[in-house]
Design a protein around this nucleic acid. Structure first.
Lengths: 139, 139
DNA sequence: ATTTGTGCAAATCGTTTGCATCTGA
DNA sequence: TCAGATGCAAACGATTTGCACAAAT
């Protein structure tokens, strides 16, 4: 009887996505999906993995994040900064980006809405609509 | 009678912003503001300047773009990619970002609207709300 | 056995910085 | 004169890549 709370089932997700359930992918998947939704950068996840005694190279973390994104397990969040953020919540929602601590926070779904999907330019199709509300500490 | 069409008046803009009207700032300002609105990257503007026989270093282009942004002559557009885009249209509007040619296009003002300004997290204030509609070539 | 993934170190890309030199008021 | 600008080259930080080695099916 496996743990009941292990309902995020990494191995299943990986298999379903056609990705081999390797040690490092399982470990990173656990870190990402075991508890609620998260916003991570490659660097952050890498440190976390090392702290959890899962020796993974930074290159592999990048590979894994991109593979997970490609198969829809993650969503890349286009913040202005140089770093790329990944969100375990792939459903449609927007973000606050705090300039001071360079962290992402979800915008509660009912607080903002986009009205009117724009018409994509000739010959183009819309891939995604990303909204980033940039905030900073008051004063 | 100075040229009538020279109504963008770089020197005036610079003076008013407390920036010395140097040769390179005037030249870059002309490239940016002489004709309609534009979206540029540092690299692009640099090439353009060289082509126009205005020898400017890339570092100076970066400096200038940031200074212009700081004084409100330009607006930085936070696209996901690694590059930073600058827009001569500083009024409130949104952008299409084309993944194929990495170019920005304005979203016509009436085609999309954000409804409901979200409440910034505790102790934070909103700096800006940026919307990027990412598009790609059909098929 | 074969295919796929991993780790390392070097390479890349956009951007920034330090510092000597030049220039506009 | 002299603060402020510029240019160059080196420094940087995030990300990618090439390739030898290791692990999964």
């Amino acid at each position: 009887m496996a743990e009941l709370r292990d309902n995020h089932n990494i191995v299943g997700k990986l298999r379903q996505a056609g990705l081999r359930p390797t040690r490092q992918r399982k470990a990173l998947g656990d870190l990402l999906f075991a508890s609620g939704h998260r916003h991570v950068t490659a660097e952050l996840l890498h440190e976390e993995a090392l702290r959890a005694h899962v020796p993974v190279s930074l290159a592999t973390v990048y590979n894994t994040l991109h593979q997970f994104t490609a198969v829809g397990l993650l969503r890349a969040v286009p913040v202005d900064g140089s770093k790329t953020y990944f969100d375990t919540n792939t459903s449609n929602h927007h973000h606050f980006y705090c300039e001071n601590n360079t962290r992402l926070i979800d915008v509660p779904n009912d607080e903002m809405e986009i009205v009117g999907y724009p018409q994509a330019p000739e010959g183009m199709e819309i891939v995604s609509v990303d909204v980033v509300v940039r905030v900073r500490e008051k004063h």
